[in-house]
């Protein structure tokens, strides 16, 4: 009992020393999300070619990705380790924050013929889930518009090698497509602003 009191005394003293700590509110969505910008860019607009933009991404897609990183269901490099540092409520707050930011429009050097071919492939095969030319997504389908081509290509490679699991409906569409068709699709998504 005595021990416990002494310990509590010490904790109170620490609190008093750092008065700001005692009266501070828990981290806001902005506080949580700002820390991500070191890798994903200010407000989630990425300048790094293999790093996805989070700005304008759908809330459901971010929550889905973070929860799968946290559980280990989705293969990761640093994201698995980082996602474990957040509660589910914090993940929802970050998803909301990034979904409210303006889409980060990129200017990429893209093959025009591939973009045109990709546009018709998207319309015929993918548009039921990848809505509005990939600017939006059904349920937890991620928005694809304006992501960097190298990032999209890296993710497609992971899907094809089985490192990242495709949703069933996506698998049905992707399996019969040629590599050229898939690459054209990615060119199209990268071109959308």
């Amino acid at each position: 009992m005595r021990m416990k009191k002494a310990w509590m005394g010490a904790a109170t003293l620490a609190g008093a020393l750092f008065a700001g700590a005692a009266s501070a509110a828990p981290p806001t969505a902005e506080m949580l999300s700002n820390a991500c910008a070191g890798c994903h860019g200010t407000k989630g607009g990425s300048a790094g070619l293999t790093m996805p933009s989070l700005a304008g991404q759908s809330k459901e897609a971010i929550i889905d990705a973070m929860k799968k990183f946290k559980s280990g269901e989705r293969a990761a490099t640093v994201m698995g380790r980082l996602a474990k540092g957040y509660t589910d409520a914090e993940i929802v707050a970050m998803g909301e924050y990034f979904s409210k930011q303006k889409l980060h429009a990129t200017n990429q050097m893209l093959d025009k013929a591939k973009v045109a071919k990709g546009a018709s492939l998207q319309e015929a095969n993918c548009s039921r889930c990848h809505l509005e030319d990939g600017k939006e997504g059904k349920d937890e389908t991620p928005a694809m518009a304006s992501q960097w081509l190298p990032y999209l290509q890296m993710q497609m490679e992971m899907y094809l090698s089985g490192k990242r699991k495709m949703p069933e409906k996506m698998e049905e569409k992707v399996k019969p497509m040629s590599k050229e068709d898939l690459d054209a699709l990615l060119h199209f998504y990268a071109s959308v602003k």
């Binding site: 070191g38 200010t42 990425s46 300048a47 070619l49 293999t50 790093m51």
Partner: peptide, 15 residues
């Protein structure tokens, strides 16, 4: 991670 490192550098310097 080598490619992510390069993207990290671009993003943090752009920030």
């Amino acid at each position: 991670e080598h490619t992510y490192a390069e993207s990290w550098l671009r993003n943090i310097l752009t920030e």
